[in-house]
């Protein structure tokens, strides 16, 4: 994974204690918050949805100051995101994490706005993920699972209907704007 240039890391990324899990409660609380913000910011800018504890993640090490997070530290920071509803473990062993830089509710609202703006009352799932209109929005390359959950939420509220499309793996959506 390559860190793209358009994400500017904050200054404290070069602060060595940022990479050591702080034992003192108050200090750690602040540290955890800073990590949560940074992870969400980064994932949003890089359109990343999955963080795996066992694979390299650009944020979790800083070669410039030769520091990297311990496994325990990564787990603590991700667990903090999970407890706030900004992430979800996607396996039982808590090795992989789905990061929700927008909550499902926020995604649903975002999709609704997007559909209104572009006049796409009827479209396909694939079009939402990679259509021409999607280009340049948050929806570009959205995790399929996240998208489906947002759409189902809209369906529950009576704002959308998901239906089977022409091919087996393509589904269509009809929005009632």
């Amino acid at each position: 994974m390559q860190r793209t240039v358009d994400f500017k890391l904050p200054h404290f990324f070069n602060y060595p204690p940022y990479f050591t899990l702080q034992p003192v409660r108050e200090t750690r609380e602040k540290q955890v918050q800073l990590w949560k913000e940074l992870i969400l910011d980064y994932c949003r800018s890089q359109k990343m949805y999955i963080i795996s504890l066992e694979e390299d993640f650009p944020l979790f090490s800083n070669p410039k100051i030769e520091r990297s997070l311990s496994y325990e530290a990564k787990e603590v920071f991700l667990a903090a995101l999970v407890s706030e509803g900004r992430a979800e473990w996607i396996d039982k062993n808590h090795k992989k994490c789905l990061v929700l830089w927008l909550r499902i509710q926020d995604w649903a609202n975002y999709i609704l706005d997007f559909v209104k703006e572009n006049g796409l009352e009827v479209t396909t799932i694939e079009d939402i993920r990679s259509g021409i209109e999607t280009h340049g929005t948050e929806l570009a390359g959205i995790d399929r699972g996240v998208l489906m959950r947002a759409l189902r939420l809209l369906e529950q509220k009576g704002k959308a209907v998901i239906f089977k499309g022409s091919s087996a793996d393509d589904e269509g959506v009809k929005f009632s704007v």
């Binding site: 904050p10 602060y15 060595p16 204690p17 050591t20 702080q22 034992p23 200090t27 520091r67």
Partner: peptide, 25 residues
């Protein structure tokens, strides 16, 4: 606050409380 690395166990002045959470950059 502490910094544990292969170089050893060192202490830094605590900056965590100085950083603005609203705008980390």
């Amino acid at each position: 606050c502490r910094d544990v690395s292969p170089d050893g166990f060192r202490f830094y002045i605590n900056l965590f409380n100085e950083i603005d959470l609203q705008n980390i950059h």
